[in-house]
Design a protein around this nucleic acid. Structure first.
Length: 248
DNA sequence: CCCTGAACCTGACCGC
DNA sequence: TGCGGTCAGGTTCAGG
């Protein structure tokens, strides 16, 4: 453990660069994939919620709860409080263009923009043997499609989740692309999916859970054909599918 | 380069 | 009530 001289050396080294650095306006909160970007004049905070992170805006003081890890305190007195039981979340500052940061530079296109389309996915999937579910969950291919929404999108598109990405047809990618965009858009509109931990900034859960048609419905009848939905594990993640509606 | 599986961490839940 | 095993919304990394 560093002793006093080492601590003092650190203090002298960092102070000239950092004093007053954070005493500035938050200009914008944007998003790239699942990363939140808090843009200030001289730096950007990159903040990822991991598996279990959530953020609350507190306008009046509130006692800390278990797994509250970070407060971002504003001049107004408002506090942005970060809670993350599993601690897979990430918070770091970058002083360069955040989009060139190692965590962001290799990310694929945003799913709701025109860059995500069937032709793009078809080209990227060429010759690849990985399951289509893993493929669309790969942030280097397209960002923002996690286990819930990959499961839902493949169900809606009628594609067997373990089908090799390279064997998915252009027509299937057209249907899949439309499904991803529709599902993500609707999930955003309903505040996301709350399974246990997740709450919105106002402390309330999201309501997309009641719209889920595949995720978590193994053993229940398919809403389209009535056949019992099945469970499988792909890439270590739970996957639910309809054996009749989802084509291999 | 691609693919797979393990690792990171804590808590909830289930069966015994 | 307790214990052990399993599982969970994401991402990175080692090894083949």
């Amino acid at each position: 453990m560093p002793e006093l001289p080492e601590v003092e050396t650190v203090r002298l080294g960092i102070s000239p660069h950092l004093v007053n650095l954070l005493d500035q306006k938050l200009l914008e909160v944007s998003r790239r994939g699942k990363y939140l970007l808090f843009r200030f004049k001289n730096l950007t905070l990159l903040w990822h919620l991991g598996m279990s992170g959530s953020m609350r805006v507190l306008l009046t003081p509130v006692p800390e709860k278990k797994h509250d890890h970070v407060d971002l305190v504003f001049g107004s007195g408002a506090v942005l409080r970060f809670n993350d039981p599993r601690r897979f979340g990430v918070l770091l500052a970058t002083f360069d263009d955040p989009l060139t940061h190692v965590l962001l530079k290799n990310l694929g296109p945003e799913p709701l923009g025109p860059e995500l389309n069937a032709a793009y996915l078809k080209a990227k999937a060429s010759k690849r043997t990985v399951a289509i579910k893993n493929f669309i969950m790969n942030a280097n291919i397209v960002v923002g499609v996690g286990n819930i929404y990959a499961t839902e999108a493949l169900y809606e598109a009628g594609i067997y989740p373990e089908k090799a990405a390279g064997k998915v047809t252009l027509k299937q990618f057209e249907v899949l692309t439309a499904a991803i965009k529709r599902i993500l858009t609707q999930a955003i509109a309903t505040g996301g999916t709350s399974l246990r931990d997740f709450v919105k900034a106002d402390g309330k859960p999201g309501y997309f859970r009641q719209e889920l048609k595949a995720y978590g419905r193994d053993g229940l009848p398919c809403g389209r054909c009535g056949v019992v939905m099945l469970h499988m594990t792909i890439g270590g993640r739970a996957t639910v599918y309809c054996p009749k509606c989802q084509k291999r």
